[in-house]
């Protein structure tokens, strides 16, 4: 079971994840239309990209935008979760052992203590996000079962992985649960809102280009005051 899940199934999960997300990017860019979007992407590409990159970077910086600053609770929750969500899967020692075994290469590895801290932070972030979803009327009205599904799919690999790491209960069962939920996340990502893993950059980039090219970028400069 373990061998299958970290062997052929891992291949499938990674292929679906990277292939699917790449397809989403290609589909997004091909679906941009200067006439329908009313943004002249082509003739102003360099200037536009400056605005697009600035737009993404500003939002990836904790408290980098007015919106983050005005909502500190959500900003903290968001970054606690997302920093761990990006760093831990990529740079966890355990993951890189499998990478080295299966694919013959590995990435730099996080010290165990830091990986633990990031994991705990990510779980705290997710709990904060879930509480906010329940507590605030303006979020509750938007919330659907689908949102809870996405939250659960995102939380499961962290929780199961951390329980396994602590060696509480049946280690092998928790490890299997961790691998299965992790691969589930990889597989559903391109087909769900989790596609924002790449589409965040597309959408943020597009609005940044929109402001840089058409909505004042030549008067105020490519960088919009997000």
């Amino acid at each position: 079971m373990y061998a299958f899940l970290t062997g052929p199934m891992l291949w499938v999960a990674l292929l679906v994840f990277f292939g699917g997300l790449a397809a989403r990017v290609v589909w997004y860019v091909r679906g941009l239309s200067w006439q329908l979007d009313r943004v002249a992407y082509g003739p102003h590409l360099a200037h536009g990209l400056k605005g697009g990159i600035h737009s993404a970077l500003k939002w990836m910086l904790p408290f980098g935008t007015q919106s983050w600053r005005e909502q500190p609770y959500f900003a903290v929750a968001f970054f606690l979760f997302h920093i761990g969500a990006v760093l831990v899967p990529l740079f966890l020692a355990g993951h890189n052992i499998i990478l080295a075994e299966r694919f013959g290469f590995s990435l730099p590895v996080l010290p165990m203590g830091i990986a633990d801290a990031l994991t705990v932070a990510a779980i705290i972030g997710l709990v904060m996000i879930a509480l906010r979803r329940i507590a605030l009327t303006e979020v509750r009205i938007l919330t659907t079962a689908y949102d809870w599904f996405i939250l659960a799919v995102s939380a499961a690999p962290f929780v199961t992985g951390f329980v396994a790491r602590l060696h509480v209960g049946n280690y092998d069962a928790w490890l299997l649960a961790h691998i299965i939920t992790g691969e589930l996340l990889l597989i559903v990502a391109p087909f769900t809102k989790l596609s924002h893993i790449v589409l965040f950059f597309m959408s943020r980039g597009q609005l940044g280009m929109d402001y840089a090219i058409k909505r004042g970028g030549y008067s105020r400069g490519a960088a919009f005051p997000w």
């Binding site: 239309s33 959500f74 979020v139 924002h196 959408s203």
Partner: peptide
């Protein structure tokens, strides 16, 4: 097309737009 479709699809229902 893709811009609007993506906007509608990836909206995280986070409600950060409320106060804006």
């Amino acid at each position: 097309q893709s811009r609007t479709k993506t906007w509608l699809e990836i909206c995280a229902h986070c409600g950060m737009c409320a106060d804006s």
